[in-house]
Computed example of a mutant assay.
Amino acid sequence: MIVRILGEGQWDVSEEHLTALNDLDEVVEAAVENGDEVTFSQSLAALLDGVRKHGAVLPDESLVNSDLILPPADATIDEVRALLSDEGLIPG
């Protein structure tokens, strides 16, 4: 699965890591719903770090459609709230 982190690039993340990333996504979503800025910042950072850690970075010049698009590390809680779907940032 190709994951884009806005402002950073794309990573190819194996399906085997999606459950762990979904777990982190749920924490981000709950923090947004509760307006918990501290948990939001920590959980978004952990989600993005998980993508970076478990994914293989794609070269900037590669032209691959992203399956998922995640907000940048400096996104605000309101910006992420606007991006959330019924399934969070990561569907599934």
Rank of each mutant, 00 (worst) to 15 (best):
residue 33 E to Q: 13
residue 87 E to S: 13
residue 91 P to I: 04
residue 32 V to D: 04
residue 75 A to D: 07
residue 30 A to L: 15
residue 58 L to N: 05
residue 85 S to D: 03
residue 63 L to E: 14
residue 69 I to G: 00
residue 62 S to E: 14
residue 73 A to L: 09
residue 76 T to K: 06
residue 2 I to T: 15
residue 6 L to R: 13
residue 27 V to T: 14
residue 33 E to M: 13
residue 24 L to Y: 02
residue 48 L to Q: 00
residue 64 V to G: 02
residue 22 N to T: 11
residue 51 V to G: 02
residue 39 T to P: 12
residue 58 L to A: 05
residue 20 A to I: 02
residue 57 V to C: 10
residue 81 R to A: 15
residue 8 E to H: 11
residue 6 L to A: 15
residue 26 E to P: 07
residue 61 E to G: 10
residue 26 E to D: 15
residue 23 D to S: 05
residue 70 L to Q: 03
residue 58 L to K: 11
residue 9 G to N: 01
residue 12 D to F: 08
residue 44 L to R: 02
residue 67 D to R: 10
residue 51 V to N: 03
residue 72 P to G: 13
residue 69 I to L: 09
residue 12 D to P: 02
residue 56 A to G: 11
residue 9 G to A: 02
residue 30 A to D: 15
residue 66 S to C: 11
residue 10 Q to S: 11
residue 61 E to K: 10
residue 29 E to C: 10
residue 49 D to M: 05
residue 19 T to E: 12
residue 9 G to V: 00
residue 3 V to A: 07
residue 37 E to P: 01
residue 90 I to P: 02
residue 45 A to S: 13
residue 70 L to A: 05
residue 29 E to R: 13
residue 87 E to W: 09
residue 2 I to E: 11
residue 20 A to C: 01
residue 1 M to E: 09
residue 57 V to Q: 15
residue 57 V to F: 10
residue 5 I to V: 06
residue 55 G to D: 00
residue 20 A to M: 01
residue 15 E to M: 08
residue 53 K to P: 07
residue 89 L to S: 09
residue 84 L to A: 07
residue 91 P to Q: 11
residue 3 V to S: 01
residue 5 I to F: 05
residue 73 A to D: 14
residue 55 G to T: 01
residue 25 D to M: 01
residue 57 V to N: 08
residue 82 A to G: 06
residue 79 E to A: 06
residue 39 T to A: 13
residue 44 L to N: 07
residue 64 V to D: 09
residue 67 D to I: 08
residue 22 N to E: 02
residue 5 I to W: 05
residue 43 S to D: 00
residue 82 A to T: 04
residue 28 V to Y: 03
residue 63 L to F: 07
residue 78 D to S: 13
residue 11 W to H: 04
residue 61 E to L: 12
residue 28 V to S: 00
residue 29 E to L: 13
residue 37 E to C: 08
residue 92 G to V: 12
residue 50 G to H: 01
residue 76 T to E: 02
residue 66 S to E: 15
residue 60 D to W: 07
residue 56 A to R: 13
residue 67 D to P: 08
residue 27 V to Q: 14
residue 61 E to P: 01
residue 30 A to F: 12
residue 42 Q to A: 13
residue 34 N to S: 14
residue 72 P to E: 14
residue 52 R to M: 00
residue 22 N to P: 01
residue 5 I to K: 00
residue 73 A to M: 08
residue 42 Q to G: 09
residue 84 L to Y: 06
residue 18 L to N: 12
residue 59 P to V: 12
residue 85 S to V: 05
residue 53 K to Q: 15
residue 91 P to K: 12
residue 67 D to Y: 03
residue 2 I to S: 11
residue 68 L to P: 04
residue 43 S to N: 06
residue 81 R to C: 11
residue 29 E to A: 13
residue 14 S to G: 10
residue 22 N to Q: 11
residue 91 P to M: 14
residue 42 Q to H: 07
residue 12 D to Q: 12
residue 65 N to I: 12
residue 71 P to S: 05
residue 88 G to K: 07
residue 16 E to N: 04
